[in-house]
Design a protein around this nucleic acid. Structure first.
Length: 839
RNA sequence: GCAGGAGUAGCGAAGUGGUCAAACGCGCGGGACUCAAAAUCCCGUCUCUUAGUGAGUUCGGAGGUUCGAAUCCUCUCUCCUGCACCA
């Protein structure tokens, strides 16, 4: 649409619109400073520093060979700006970057294009590192890491063994997503909508032996410690819900002479139980199915194997079949039928529920559908109709000795009653499940385990780590690892007889659960990291990343660190003190991403205006935490700001700062600091621009004032400011300069008030000029009548008035006797508001 | 369905009880500069009215609280983001 316009710009835009003698070629100076920063290791940090440490971290990215798009640019600029700000403010800032290089995309690419995942990952890393540098990021590259490197994943295996020793890593059968057509396991993300992402065929649930980390052991601590950390409430809430702690009662029901525990949060309704429902996916379902019902039940099991699509989910169609068995009610001794149902989760509670249709919506639907009896046991103020369940509070009825008791209280009393009779007990239940870490995939950390016919599951001895991923495998197979004989065939570490190596690898979230620790000591060959070094840097003071990791990476990392604390590797139990969620960049209504094809790459902006403009623009248009719809209209505004800064350098003179400039600076500086600290970048930029505007109004700009200007823009526009810093005669790196301190005593609010008054006067004059000219008259002179005590400071602005209005301005005090005032406009004067007469 | 967030001028985006007709940027209109254009600079940009004044109507919609609301409460519509039958 605007193509012609866009294409014309670069010619002019590549160089700054500056006078002949000072041209800036943005591409050139970007390269210059990026090279210098690299050469002088400007951002390398050591623990020996006397400064206070500060750890700024962005979630490490999956390396892809394509350019960074605006979503990335925004994300990493948020962090880089913050890191630069902190660094200039006297902190010893650790700001590292690395790569989450294991994972499915590399494996898929290799299947498609025949490139080995290792090659794919490494070439991607090479490219993406360049793009990162082109962004002007201030990473300490000496600390980088990539999770596919044996030097890194060796320690994944090491930690796995430690967890295994502690019983925190274990193996069990679990239902997973399985595509029959591809003969492959799918991650949840790959089985979206119940269909295989590759072939589109139906995905089924299948039971497979899997490795788990026992995150459930830490559920309580993960929940409680949320109090300790400064994270967005949204993320905390999501984690709380995910952990899903609920207090309830476990009640024993007898089925076929065997006790079956059933979890409920509503023991108060136990007298309303009219049937039981066992999950159609319960492993012991067939045990309680009678011969007559077997066929029907098997049909149901088959049906519920399908993963649910989101549409099916919405319908919430409840299906059930009678098992033929009956359960004995623990209190009344009544016999109630046991049904199998698809709406009961097999792995929550005990996989069976006591159904109280009168007081639970789901049970009610089910009872209606299969014509099962409904028995009301709570009476509320609103009379319960038979047509719907009663879910409110109330007093118990039809509950024998508990009749008349308030139902909340009855929860306690009935639980106590059951406990005494050994028919139940108080329990706590969690929604969170153990963390399934096995992947039947090649491109991940091999799980260091061996299966021996004699010894069973045997861990690989520590000294044999790392278990290297074999490079020669057949990528056509669904799990290429299974095709490497030399990998699979091993001797049992214990008995030395023939054994088989585990071919599962670890999911990528294991890698990302401790990478932030490895940055602190990334070259350590003897240990995953040195405790002292980690203690110096950790915890991460400011973590930055997307909210999509709320209940995955962010939860796993917390768990992992807690485990490491218990094992004595670290001294803290929360990895990230503060968390900032950046907003997502959208385009055409969808999240900007390569797969959706709606990307705008960094180069599209940087080639035209330079990367500093792209950075400034992205930080300026919208608050970093807000989602934003990408539009490049407005980029020019940021481009102008940069050019104004450049242009201003011509006015630098050896002179002292006046009081007004100092006031202006300190006032804005104070705001800027507050705004950057709270990631309120647009406002920080506005305040910076206010200061710029003031300097522009000066005839001569003191060097000191200009240097301050460069400093405050430095975190946003590191290259241009660094270049200008050098051009005005500095030898140091601006990036390492000390951020100016606020001097409150220099702030004089009067200057602000006067300035506003002056602006208002100008606007008034112009207004009158307009009205006059609309009437066909014209004016060339303006007479202002001011209050006597204001004459001094207003008169000082006479030249300014002339400049802004184009009129010959004369100023009188209202009490001047020889003033020229033919229409007595001086009578209109008020403090701060002079009378105006034009002619 | 549940949880969280958002809806403000042509657009983006501030503002969370009075100082708000609403910062800042873009766009648009006018002017300066120029032979001209670009760039740059200045002014203006809700409506009406007016020699700088005054008035009116605005902050998704409808009510309400208050001397006073874009800001608080209730209901309601739309969009986004999570979670998803958790007993």
């Amino acid at each position: 649409m605007k193509k012609s316009e866009k294409q014309e710009k670069p010619e002019n835009a590549k160089k700054s619109e500056n006078s002949e003698n000072q041209e800036l070629d943005f591409a050139k100076i970007e390269k210059k400073w990026q090279d210098k920063w690299e050469k002088f290791q400007t951002f390398k940090v050591e623990e020996s520093s006397k400064k206070k440490k500060y750890y700024v971290l962005e979630m490490y990215p999956y390396p892809s060979a394509s350019f960074l798009h605006m979503g990335h640019v925004r994300n990493y600029t948020i962090g880089d700006t913050y890191a630069r700000f902190k660094r200039m403010n006297g902190f010893n800032v650790l700001y590292p970057m690395g790569y989450d290089s294991f994972g499915l995309p590399a494996e898929t690419a290799s299947k498609k294009e025949g490139i080995h995942p290792k090659k794919y990952a490494e070439s991607s890393i090479k490219k993406i590192s360049e793009y990162f540098k082109a962004l002007g990021t201030s990473y300490d590259w000496s600390r980088t890491l990539a999770s596919h490197e044996p030097e890194y994943y060796k320690w994944n295996q090491y930690f796995f063994l430690k967890l295994f020793e502690k019983g925190l890593a274990y193996r069990k059968k679990a239902p997973i997503n399985w595509c029959e057509n591809c003969a492959s396991v799918l991650a949840n993300e790959e089985a979206e909508g119940g269909e295989c992402w590759r072939c589109g065929k139906e995905v089924v649930k299948k039971d497979l032996e899997q490795w788990f980390f026992k995150i459930t052991d830490y559920a309580d601590r993960l929940l409680e410690d949320l109090e300790k950390i400064d994270w967005p409430d949204k993320i905390k809430t999501m984690q709380r819900n995910w952990i899903g702690k609920s207090h309830g009662t476990e009640i024993l029901f007898e089925i076929n002479k065997e006790k079956w525990p059933v979890f409920t949060t509503r023991p108060d309704t136990v007298f309303g139980v009219t049937f039981m429902v066992i999950s159609s996916q319960h492993p012991r379902l067939l045990e309680i199915t009678t011969k007559d019902q077997k066929k029907e039940i098997e049909k149901l099991i088959e049906k519920s194997k399908k993963a649910k699509t989101s549409e099916e989910m919405e319908k919430l169609e409840k299906v059930g079949v009678f098992t033929g068995s009956y359960a004995v009610h623990p209190i009344t001794g009544e016999k109630v039928p046991v049904w199998a149902g698809n709406f009961v989760l097999a792995d929550y509670g005990s996989g069976m529920v006591m159904a109280v249709p009168a007081h639970d919506a789901r049970d009610f639907d089910f009872a209606k559908k299969y014509k099962l009896p409904i028995k009301f046991v709570i009476e509320g103020k609103t009379k319960s109709k038979e047509s719907e369940p009663y879910l409110e509070k109330g007093k118990l009825i039809n509950s024998k000795e508990f009749n008349g008791i308030d139902n909340e209280q009855a929860k306690q009393e009935i639980t106590e009653f059951l406990s005494k009779k050994k028919l139940g007990k108080k329990v706590v239940n969690y929604k969170i499940r153990d963390w399934l870490i096995s992947r039947q995939r090649y491109w991940g950390t091999p799980i260091p385990m061996v299966y021996c016919d004699k010894c069973g599951i045997v861990p690989v001895p520590e000294k044999d780590l790392p278990v290297l991923l074999p490079e020669k495998v057949d990528f056509k197979s669904s799990n290429p690892l299974t095709t490497s004989k030399e990998f699979i065939e091993v001797k049992c570490p214990k008995c030395k007889s023939k054994a088989r190596r585990e071919t599962d690898t670890m999911g990528g979230f294991v890698d990302s659960s401790w990478y932030f620790l490895r940055y602190c000591d990334n070259k350590n060959k003897d240990k995953p990291f040195d405790k002292k070094r980690v203690d110096y840097w950790m915890p991460v003071d400011q973590y930055i990343g997307g909210a999509e990791h709320a209940v995955m990476h962010l939860l796993y990392a917390r768990f992992f660190v807690k485990v490491l604390k218990d094992l004595g590797y670290v001294n803290f139990d929360e990895p990230f003190s503060k968390l900032f969620n950046q907003g997502i960049v959208y385009k055409d209504g969808a999240k900007m991403s390569k797969s959706k094809g709606n990307v705008v790459y960094q180069t599209e902006i940087s080639e035209k205006y330079g990367i500093d403009t792209a950075r400034l623009f992205l930080m300026f248009v919208s608050s970093p935490d807000k989602q934003m719809e990408w539009s490049d209209s407005g980029v020019e505004g940021s481009y102008r700001i940069i050019n104004r800064i450049i242009k201003l350098s011509q006015k630098i003179k050896k002179c002292k700062q006046d009081a007004k400039t100092e006031s202006k600076f300190n006032l804005n500086l104070k705001k800027i600091i507050e705004f950057i600290e709270s990631f309120d970048y647009p406002k920080a930029i506005i305040s910076s621009t206010n200061y710029l505007e003031h300097l522009e109004s000066l005839e001569e700009v003191p060097k000191e004032s200009y240097e301050n200007l460069l400093k405050i823009f430095s975190p946003f526009c590191p290259h241009v400011t660094e270049e200008l810093w050098e051009r005005i005669g500095n030898k140091s790196f601006l990036s390492l300069e000390q951020w100016p301190a606020v001097d409150e005593s220099k702030i004089n609010e009067n200057f602000e008030k006067q300035e506003q008054a002056i602006e208002k006067i100008i606007s008034d004059i112009n207004q009158v000029v307009k009205i006059v000219s609309d009437k066909g008259n014209s004016a060339s002179k303006a007479y202002l009548y001011v209050m006597p005590n204001e004459k001094d400071w207003i008169s000082k602005e006479t030249e300014f008035f002339k400049e802004k209005t184009g009129l010959d301005v004369k100023i009188f005090a209202v009490n001047d006797k020889d003033k020229y005032d033919p229409e007595e406009k001086s009578k209109k004067a008020k403090p701060g508001k002079p009378g105006i007469y034009l002619e």
